[in-house]
Amino acid sequence: MQNRSILVPVLLCAAAVMFFRAPFMIDAAPYESTMGLIQRIFYFHVPSAMVMFLSALVCGVASAVYLAKRSPHADAVAVSAAEMVVVFGLIVLVTGPLWARKAWGVWWQWDARLTSALVLWLIFVSYLLLRRFAGAGSEMVAAAVGVFGMANVPFVYWSVNVWRTIHPNTNVVASLIPEMRVPLYWGTAAFLLLYIALLLTRMRLEASRMQLEAAYAEIED
């Protein structure tokens, strides 16, 4: 507990510094002529998508551990990670259409990656709905959904991809020139730090909640 309380502010500070530095790096990166300014969304969009998928993985693994061992700690990790999937997914789903508006002239194009992200996001929204509305004792059920959600990622990705590429209008994703990679990696690292900090904070909240429940139970005893 003690070291974590130092770790989170450190992570947050580091992430803040990195996010502050990021616009300068992005500005220094080459200007993409066809997409123009909007291309720079990419440096936020892609890292948040990566973090979203990572968080789905974390939630799935934690859920599996909870199913096998029933450790409340694993459940706390799973809830926290699921909420992070939804938060970072929201960033992806907001920045994606901004890109689409410029690239294709419409707010939503059934682009394979964006659609996969939407499906994954929906799965984890349903996970949170379940936890919110199913009543007491829904942790095990939620854990099963978490495992299924994670196992579903490759199927969603594959099926949406094939579904789209069967059609002629495949989208053109420009291959990255090296100068663009540095700010992308920088952004990814910043989002990763932010993610870990938020996840730890959320887990601490969950731990406090459990302590509170235990304290209530003790008072009643």
């Binding site: 499906v119 349903s126 379940l130 009543g135 059920v141 949406v160």
Partner: peptide, 26 residues
Amino acid sequence: MLIRAQSRDVLLPVLLYPITIPLVIA
């Protein structure tokens, strides 16, 4: 697993449809 959950009627499709999207696409 939802048999004892509250609002199971609406939660079943809410959980089931996103997970089975690959099936429907296929």
